[in-house]
């Protein structure tokens, strides 16, 4: 039987149509049904901290400690009290910073009305360009698809590179597991629709968990209406913990 060029094109064309119909059918029928489960790609988590609302009660530190079983003397979040003397030469000003036990039991009362003083809660900034992730030699620490910096305890060697790399001092070596440990932004809570333990327990609403990818999240209005800062912007870490009314003396 002779096959002409016309026959070949006709047969090829039919095959092509059949294949494309088959592929489309497979896409329609085989596509996974939209699930109610947590979709990491639809979130991009961060936090907004309002300095002018923080009363230094230490509720966040206690809540974090309870929720994440943080070993005593170590902190995933802590509160600092700044006392800044603005009266002398500005270049000589060194703020007095204290954080007794991370502020877990609050602070001894200060009566220094002559100083500018305020509280600064701190935690992992969940940087989008995080230095701690870049230095990990084994892929034990990583940025999750929803923007949370996490540690895989099964992979961590305990080499401490990440602890040195973090410009914010947010990591520690867990004394029992000997692996790097840090704030997980309560990943086990936020992926279940709860807020973080620190935000849940903040009595004044100074801390707010935000989702930058959710168009209905109040973060967009807050970012538009306020002057917000991140800590150490010159480190170019693209930190996702934003501070409202942050003083220039905070390091």
């Amino acid at each position: 039987m002779d096959i002409t060029r016309r026959d070949l094109f006709a047969a090829g064309g039919k095959l092509l149509i059949l294949a494309s119909v088959g592929a489309t059918l497979e896409q329609i029928t085989g596509a996974a049904p939209p699930s109610e489960a947590y979709q990491a790609a639809e979130h991009w988590w961060g936090m907004i901290i309002d300095i002018d609302k923080c009363i230094g009660c230490g509720n966040c530190v206690r809540a974090c400690s309870n929720e994440n079983k943080v070993p005593k003397g170590y902190f995933r979040t802590w509160v600092e009290r700044y006392e800044v003397n603005e009266g002398t030469h500005p270049e000589e000003v060194q703020p007095h910073v204290e954080s007794p036990e991370g502020g877990i039991n609050g602070f001894p009362p200060s009566t220094r009305e002559d100083l500018k003083s305020f509280f600064v809660p701190k935690l992992c900034n969940h940087c989008a360009e995080s230095p701690c992730v870049q230095v990990c030699p084994v892929g034990a620490t990583f940025i999750s698809p929803d923007g949370v910096v996490l540690v895989d305890q099964n992979y961590c060697l305990g080499c401490r590179y990440c602890i040195q790399a973090c410009p914010y001092g947010c990591r520690y070596l867990h004394p029992e597991t000997n692996t790097a440990d840090k704030c997980t932004l309560c990943y086990h809570r936020i992926t279940k629709g709860l807020t973080t333990a620190c935000c849940e327990n903040c009595p004044t609403g100074a801390r707010l968990l935000v989702d930058f990818k959710n168009p209905k999240d109040p973060v967009h209005e807050l970012l538009r209406a306020n002057k917000l800062q991140v800590l150490k912007p010159y480190m170019a870490t693209r930190a996702k913990v934003f501070y409202k009314d942050l003083d220039g003396s905070v390091r």
């Binding site: 947590y38 990491a40 809540a63 309870n66 929720e67 994440n68 990583f142 999750s144 996490l150 895989d152 305890q153 099964n154 992979y155 997980t184 990943y187 086990h188 809570r189 992926t191 279940k192 709860l194 807020t195 333990a197 849940e200 327990n201």
Partner: peptide, 14 residues
């Protein structure tokens, strides 16, 4: 690791 971290238990019910 994401699933392992998600599986941790919650202390504060909300």
């Amino acid at each position: 690791a994401l699933e392992r971290i998600r599986a941790r238990s919650v202390s504060y019910a909300g």
